[in-house]
Nucleic acid binder design. Structure first.
Lengths: 222, 222
DNA sequence: GTCTATAAATAGATAGAC
DNA sequence: GTCTATCTATTTATAGAC
């Protein structure tokens, strides 16, 4: 097998194992075995285990650039479509974490060990989401469209719903799932909750139509 | 030092180290050093490293019994005080995770490695919270006090806000903190968002008084 | 109870043949 | 490029003196 291809193969298996068992919890022997090569091959392509980890970081951090939130919700923000802004953002995060569950696990391991990946993700992504969503909310407050509340609290609340839901799906997968719901539905529901609230008090209910909405809302359950 | 006391001391240090670096990331030598004893002492009290981990699990799982949510919010549920139910629950979780940050980290490590602690916590605690909060929401829906929405989605959303906020505080502590806010304020804000929503649309604003509430809401910021 | 010394297993990493 | 064999350091765990 050609050098580049083998390298990528080892990298791929290493990602999976690191994401499942953490950096220190994974041995180079296991990686070699999973990749179907000898340990010596691993060290031929990556001088040290640390370098292997770094290569993963670089690869993931690089692909992380593509997940630029500005791009995706820019138009929604431009036309001040609150629903689209939040729903799009949520759906993007949920989809991404579903397609590449390893990344979230890797990130979590990294955060627990205070490794580079988590720090980079924090700086390059999280900070920006908080900044531009915060700005957007501030803008909408000036418009009188949103109540006076610290914008970052709103961001934290919404990101919390979405990421925590993702995390639950990734960590407690399959059997133990408490809440079965499609990403589309989840993104919509979380956006609904954030934007319109749950209670019906002090409100002329334009919400009742939601209950008869497009598809079964009662079906999804434990 | 007496046997029982030394044992507890080793256990305490082991908890801290395991929570910081994970099970495999922590060596018995480090634990011994941190506890100020020789490695042999560690193995005198705990036959294997695994047994040390199990002892931690048992200890933590046991203390987990005390965090029975029923007890704390029972009266609030009885008098159908939505605000108190959610705010109390949130404040309890935030306080607990702040006082004992090791537990959340330990739990996360455990969840990533699919270890016993996470499974037990899931069965003994998470499941129950979802069940009884879900029941409560269903009840309030029958009362006409809450909109028709899958109750478990609401639980997931609220738990998400609270736990994600805790997690952020624990993992990204100190310098990198994006959102500085007291637990009391956070519990109140999250409850506000969940129960009353963020937008002012279709609503006679009984919310404006909130803006001038007890203490500075604008002060808390990045 | 506590230590030093050490065994036994495993980890990361290298040498050198093919 | 790939393997087997091996080295070295670390890690878990034990022995035995005090």
């Amino acid at each position: 097998m050609a050098g580049g291809e083998r390298r990528r193969q080892i990298l791929r298996l290493a990602v999976r194992l690191f994401s499942q068992r953490g950096f220190r919890g994974t041995t180079t022997k296991e990686i070699a075995l999973a990749a179907g090569v000898s340990e010596a091959m691993v060290f031929r392509h990556f001088a040290t285990k640390e370098e292997l980890y770094s290569a993963i970081i670089d690869h993931k951090a690089c692909s992380g650039d593509e997940r630029d939130p500005y791009q995706l919700v820019a138009e929604a923000i431009a036309r001040k479509d609150d629903r689209a802004v939040f729903e799009q953002l949520a759906l993007d995060a949920l989809t991404q974490n579903e397609c590449d569950p390893d990344f979230q696990r890797l990130l979590l391991h990294s955060a627990l060990e205070d490794h580079k990946l988590a720090q980079m993700f924090w700086e390059k992504f999280v900070r920006r989401v908080y900044a531009f969503l915060g700005d957007y909310i501030r803008q909408r407050q000036r418009d009188g469209a949103m109540i006076q509340i610290e914008p970052l609290v709103v961001v934290r609340a919404f990101v919390g719903m979405v990421i925590h839901h993702s995390l639950n799906n990734n960590l407690w997968d399959r059997k133990r799932r408490l809440l079965k719901i499609s990403n589309q539905d989840a993104a919509r529901e979380f956006t609904d909750i954030l934007l319109r609230g749950v209670t019906t008090t002090n409100r002329r209910n334009g919400l009742s139509k939601k209950a008869t909405g497009k598809n079964s809302r009662k079906k999804s359950s434990r």
